[in-house]
């Protein structure tokens, strides 16, 4: 192997590893949002819930007493972030299902609430960008040392592995369980589902809460797994891209996985293009992931059928 071939291998391995790692928060948030959308619930407040999850995960881990088990506190942080996310998801269900609010508008409201409250909490607790303990990368004997795929597949933190594990679990729930069938039925035809005895409101409460839970975990993955720091607006819009990735993935876990990984890998390519000095304008390079997402989105939405009742409120006895 020549030096150039070795360099190329290093770059490819780095792109794959970075791309798959970068996809972590997108996967959690998109899979959660996917459950909501499959039942007819659009939540544009994902980013705000992620911000609250990022802060919650951070502040719990940050409280680790001297000499205490750091890992235990990190897991407690994930749990607390999930709980806060669940509560916010539940709140979106109250507003959208029970009160019948317009989902797009209420979603923006929840985003602004999460953005503002998380910023305020950071100010009154730590007051500045602050590093924190984190889940270390797990390396496997032999596997992690394999060329190309060693770093890409076998050298990530536990939350990244968890995000990828969630893909088959989500597929199984949606396609192989009664609950999944009910979720899809409620999203396609709530009136028919209701006539068959399925509680539309209960299912939508469940999916909105699950979506919020996973958004909270997505936020925690940023602060205590991937970047080990808290900062105001640490998501910088990741939650909005996550919502788009559900459309991109045509409301399937595999599609969401491909979308998240593609977005991650193209983002990594855009950085390597600059690092290698290939003469591409940096303004163009940073647009690459978004251009690719938009192009694929255009084609995927054309072939995919979105849940027929998406964003439509349901009241028994109507329609």
């Amino acid at each position: 192997m020549t030096g150039e071939e070795r360099d190329l291998l290093v770059i490819l391995a780095s792109i794959l590893a970075q791309g798959l790692r970068f996809a972590t928060p997108y996967l959690y948030a998109s899979l959660g949002e996917m459950f909501g959308q499959l039942s007819g619930m659009l939540n544009l407040g994902v980013d705000g819930i992620m911000l609250m999850g990022a802060f919650t995960g951070f502040i719990v881990a940050y409280q680790t007493p001297e000499g205490a088990d750091v890992t235990a506190y990190l897991w407690l942080g994930v749990l607390a972030a999930a709980l806060v996310g669940a509560l916010l998801g539940l709140a979106t269900a109250v507003v959208n299902v029970t009160l019948g609010a317009e989902q797009g508008i209420s979603g923006i409201g929840f985003y602004m609430f999460g953005f503002g409250l998380s910023s305020l909490l950071i100010k009154v607790t730590v007051g500045r960008p602050t590093p924190v303990a984190f889940f270390p990368d797990i390396r496997f004997p032999v596997l992690s040392d394999l060329p190309l795929v060693g770093d890409a597949l076998f050298s990530h933190n536990i939350m990244t592995y968890g995000a990828y594990l969630l893909v088959p679990v989500s597929w199984w729930v949606i396609n192989r369980t009664t609950l999944g069938l009910k979720i899809r039925a409620v999203g396609q035809n709530p009136e028919a589902a209701d006539s068959l005895g399925v509680s539309v409101a209960r299912i939508r409460y469940l999916t909105a809460t699950l979506g919020g839970t996973l958004a909270g975990v997505a936020g925690a993955s940023l602060s205590i797994a991937l970047y080990h720091v808290i900062q105001e607006n640490i998501t910088n819009g990741i939650g909005f891209i996550a919502v788009a990735l559900v459309y991109f993935g045509a409301w399937t876990p595999a599609g969401v996985l491909i979308g998240s990984a593609l977005f991650g890998v193209v983002s990594a390519v855009s950085r390597w293009v600059q690092a290698l000095g290939l003469g591409i304008d940096p303004n163009v390079a940073v647009m690459l992931p978004y251009i690719v997402t938009i192009v694929v989105l255009v084609f995927s939405v054309q072939r995919a059928r979105q849940p027929a009742a998406l964003t439509k409120p349901f009241q028994r006895g109507e329609g």
Partner: peptide
């Protein structure tokens, strides 16, 4: 080498850019 993130507040993107440069 220089990598621009395209944003002033993209902490995640900046961290990934740093990891690219480290690689």
């Amino acid at each position: 080498p220089v990598i621009y993130t395209g944003s002033f507040g993209d902490t995640a993107g900046a961290a990934e850019a740093a990891r690219t440069l480290i690689a």
